[in-house]
Every structure is written in C-alpha cells, then in structure tokens.
Amino acid sequence: MSGSHRGDLRGLHVAVDSPVHRLDPAAKLVGTVAFAVVVAGTPRHAAVVTVVEAVLLAVVVAVSRIGARRVLARLVVVMPFVLFALTIPFVAHGPRTEVGGISVSTEGLWAAWNVVAKTTLGATAAIAMSASTPLPSMLEGMARLHVPRVVVAIVSSMVRYVELLAAQLARMRTAMVSRGHDPRWLWQVGPVAASVGMLFVRSYERGERVHGAMVARGFTGTLVVSDRPAVATTDWVVALLPAAVSAIAVVVWVVGR
C-alpha cells in the first residue's frame, strides 16, 4: 500500500561489476522465472529444500555484490504478506498444537511458513534480477525471448516516462500546497483527483506529441532492437543453475519420502 518504493526506477539498478551483472539478460530473465516457478512449486513440508533454495539465492546475492542491506530494504514490499501470514495459525482451522502455551493450528503454522518462505524467496529473486540488470538490457532480453515487439516497445516507452510523470505530479502537488491545499487528507480528494485528471490529459497529449515526433523521424509502428550475438551456452547454464539445483532437490525430497 505505501508507495515510496514505486516509481523510483533510477534506484533499481545497482551499478557494480559482477558475474551476475555480466550474465546475458535474456538468460537471467529465464533463470529468474524458472527459479520462482520451482520455489512456488516446492512442497511446503519440504523445509530442507526451501533451505537449499535460500542458500542458492544467498550465494547469487553475495556474488552479485548488490548488498544484503539493499535487498532487505527492498523486501519491505512483501511485509504486508508476511504480517498476514503471521495471523494464519490463529485463524486457521484444523488440529491444533501448543506453541509457547498458545493454541495454534498445526496446518496453519505450515501455511504461514509456506507464505513467508515463498514470498521472500520469489521477491528476492526478482530484486536480484532487477538490481543486476540495467533497464535497457532487460528490455532487450525480453525482445530476444520473443516477447511481442509491441509489448516491449510499450514497456520501454512506459519506463521512459514514469519518472517524468511522477515529477509532473510532484510539481502539481507543490502548486496545490502553495495555494493553501493540504493534499494529505481524504477530504482533499477533490483537488487531488483534479490533478490526477489533469495528469491524464497532459499524459495523453504528451503521447500524441511524442507520436508526432516519432513519425517525423520515420517511426513505422515498431521499435528497432539492436541485435546482440546469440546467448552463450555458458550463460544459459549459469543462469539456470539455481533453478535446476532446486528442482533436483524437490525431486529428491519427493522420491525419498
């Protein structure tokens, strides 16, 4: 709900040099999604496997030199879900156990662990990817994974203008405050909505001007994406390693039970 993390696109990429940063963006995207899928599919009772996944992710974060503190700071996004998870053992049904003298649902405890583990691991993987990949590379990676060109172009023009529109909104807010409004409260919803409406009109008109400028420069509907050499096999292997090891761990756990 709180939104200080949103829109700050400049703070996303951590510009240090590391093997994770040098990995091909297309391979990194696939590796991250594959890892998130394996994490989401890990049986909740396989706590050992979750620990293996956490260690793998910790290694990736350490190698990437993003900084654990930065990752933790950005994990604030998932806090509401962690807090929600902590309430599960108390509201859940089913057989109950005593923890420190309080009666809680046994399966509720497992469910809480499930939400906390998967939420944290999935979010950390996404954070590690976005922190180690500059936005243009990420878009290029998407294009090379055969995400439709139009989608890539829409996303790229979106990320290009987010900060500008956010700054425009901030200026409108400053203007409101200097006219004596106090846009922090619900009863100020009128002027707040009026500036959001104006932001829409300005955004749309900006879109039309940008389109005109693009057409004048020979735009035909799709953006040209620079051609990089094909993804090296080693990049695929390295990027898919955490997901593969986790998947093997899941299989071993399921078979060995």
């Binding site: 709900m1 709180s2 939104g3 949103r6 829109g7 139009v150 172009a153 829409i154 996303v155 790229s156 023009s157 979106m158 990320v159 290009r160 203008y161 987010v162 500008l164 529109l165 956010a166 425009q168 909104l169 807010r173 846009p183 922090r184 409260w185 619900l186 100020q188 919803v189 707040v192 959001v196 932001l199 829409f200 955004s203 749309y204 900006r206 879109g207 039309e208 940008v210 389109h211 693009m214 735009f219 509907g221 799709t222 953006l223």
Partner: peptide, 19 residues
C-alpha cells in the same frame, strides 16, 4: 506504442499519490 506506454506510466504515477 507512445500512447499505451505513456498511459501506463500515468497509471503507475497515479498509484503513487498516497493519502
């Protein structure tokens, strides 16, 4: 491309207006 992209940026920015 420009209209959908900038409109997406608008929704993104509008969601930042917390009260």
């Amino acid at each position: 491309v420009p209209l959908a992209g900038i409109s997406a940026a608008f929704i993104f920015a509008a969601q930042m207006f917390n009260f």
